[in-house]
Design a protein around this nucleic acid. Sequence first.
DNA 1: TATGAATGAGTGTTCATTCAT
DNA 2: GATGAATGAACACTCATTCAT
Lengths: 215, 215, 215, 215
Amino acid sequence: MERTKRPVPTSVKDTQLIEKRRAEMIRGSVQLFKQKGFHRTTTREIAKAAGFSIGTLYEYIRTKEDVLYLVCDSIYDQVKSRIEQMDLEQGTLENLKLGISHFFYVIDEMQDEVQVLYQEVKSLSKDVLPYVLEKEEEMTAMVEKLIQRCVDNGVLDMDKDHVRMLAQNIFVLGQMWGFRRWMLQENFTLEEYINLQIDLLFEGVKGYEKKAALK
Amino acid sequence: MERTKRPVPTSVKDTQLIEKRRAEMIRGSVQLFKQKGFHRTTTREIAKAAGFSIGTLYEYIRTKEDVLYLVCDSIYDQVKSRIEQMDLEQGTLENLKLGISHFFYVIDEMQDEVQVLYQEVKSLSKDVLPYVLEKEEEMTAMVEKLIQRCVDNGVLDMDKDHVRMLAQNIFVLGQMWGFRRWMLQENFTLEEYINLQIDLLFEGVKGYEKKAALK
Amino acid sequence: MERTKRPVPTSVKDTQLIEKRRAEMIRGSVQLFKQKGFHRTTTREIAKAAGFSIGTLYEYIRTKEDVLYLVCDSIYDQVKSRIEQMDLEQGTLENLKLGISHFFYVIDEMQDEVQVLYQEVKSLSKDVLPYVLEKEEEMTAMVEKLIQRCVDNGVLDMDKDHVRMLAQNIFVLGQMWGFRRWMLQENFTLEEYINLQIDLLFEGVKGYEKKAALK
Amino acid sequence: MERTKRPVPTSVKDTQLIEKRRAEMIRGSVQLFKQKGFHRTTTREIAKAAGFSIGTLYEYIRTKEDVLYLVCDSIYDQVKSRIEQMDLEQGTLENLKLGISHFFYVIDEMQDEVQVLYQEVKSLSKDVLPYVLEKEEEMTAMVEKLIQRCVDNGVLDMDKDHVRMLAQNIFVLGQMWGFRRWMLQENFTLEEYINLQIDLLFEGVKGYEKKAALK
DNA sequence: TATGAATGAGTGTTCATTCAT
DNA sequence: GATGAATGAACACTCATTCAT
């Protein structure tokens, strides 16, 4: 489950410096990409936002696309490390709820980054896409594990397919909070959103069947 | 609830011709946008794909962005008209399932278009965005109506918020089939996907609680 | 003995216009290349010298190197057509002298062009070089034919190798007038140069052996 | 007739070190220039080929052009010292032939260097050109001396102009072996080339006149 | 109405040169 | 003396848009 990186060649040798400069670069780029998208952002703007010259920028990357890759890669790592902090020892339903809730909080905190990730991944060329998709898979795998624990614990009775699909749903519903913010965040607070989603996720439509009618 | 259009000015008067030319334009553009995205597609390519010259193209639009708007608008209309065909007279759970299923089928059939819509909407400038978002809202409203009918019919006991959120979930889960195809369409057929989603949507996590434990 | 052309793709369709614009382009480029060489000349300078914008320039070529190819190709054609005018009916030594003399005159008249050809051919990439070298071979073949006629006529008794080498020598000695002008054109007029070269070429070193010593 | 050098300023004082570093620099540059030409070679590549850093490179030169000058200068010196080794004491025709032959051998041995010299001299700026042309003149002067000796010895009866021109011809015919290698070295060995050229040079066209015709 | 040649601002990228360490 | 990170002017090339025919 080791993270795979596509190395982005540099002219600079000092690895510490590379780390530092790239962090500056990424920070600036996220802001720009969020505002104008990758394609409408120029390399000069990236360099400026990062605080160095265009020449220096190109000491740390080879092409503009490298910036996008670096940005995506970094965001994934951040999100992942944030999610990893959550404790999912016991596989109880209550714990599952907490996990989902935590996941939604993380997404909310990193909304800008997630938005960028979400909107620009497809601008990556075919040869870096695999690296990025692998990351996505890792992340859904984390949600999957959360559910699987409940199954293993004997709390849930779900087959592998249902588990996988549920994990994906939770994942996408999390992102939805970010990419449909124009619709959601006007009408709901984060807490409301989380409660609503957990309700729907746990109860299912059937949970809302009118009992009165059954009598 | 009439559809609102942002008028795209033309130098040409003959409305029939406009209709025809734009249809050619849109058809060609969808293919191109799917392959290379809006930004990497040139106006020359659009003109060529549409079957006329660059000069003629600009007789029917003002800017490149107009093409994108026209494309998005057209796709919405198509999807909408496809969905409208479904009969949702009776508000039963069975009928709701059928409706969802039908919606997923539509998304699948128009996968290319939905993908384009989905990936390029954000490239629209701030001033056309409202028009497009309105369309989105119309579409989720259709799913909403499907559910609301069950509520009105006394089959479901859901408040407005839950209904809205559920509608959005279904909508996004539909799109998910398209935009996560790299992950989903390798592992599931459309039928499997639909069944799985309807299962999860209707049963909820609780539906999978181990009954044995209840003894 | 048909001339082979490497086609240089255009966005423009009107072949007459292509011909015209390229002629303008070539004329301007020769001046620039002579002054500063191919590498130090910018595409903008080429466009300006040709009398149109940078955008228009690129309607008629794909890369900067295309300009160089077009220039070289055109110069070859000009030189060749100039040489072809000379009448080399009879294969006499007198006629050979006239031919050589004529060749030198042509080189002198097209000095600028020849100089450019001579200095910049090697800047062409490997894939166009064959086209250009073929042209060179055609031209030496013309000089060769001039000599061969004398052999065929029974005036000279030379084998193929000697004929070929002599042709090459004459060819290079012609170019020499152009590329060593800094040394030659200070000390000799064209007529002097021609006379001197014809002397040396026809007499050979042995022709200058001291007769007195032979007595 | 002392060699004139254009001094290339240095930040380094230690003359031994300068000598050593520059030798490394020149060796590496010749290879690079031969492969890609002066303009397509970067200073970084030169530094790397020389075995030190870009910073160090600039301790020993001021501009990239200095490298070219140093390279050309060095090649001239080498060629010259190689030619000077030949013994041309006696001014006989046999000795002249030997001299020419030796000269051609030297050119052949130093083909790469000569090629570079030949192709890149024109890239030197106007202010160093005189230094380089002076070198060229020195070299033709050496060939000239070889011929002049025969004249002085009473073996040849040639005026100054003929001597100079003949020297230039021999010089250029030597270079021709290098710069027209694509045509010559496919068809002739060096020995064949030398024999052919000496034949033509000594006999002249008249030497091949058909004697039968004289009857 | 239709065409396609013309335009030039704008883009990604390179590379000779400098200078703090 | 040696290093290599930083710089930014300069370059080749693109492409949305216009307009004369």
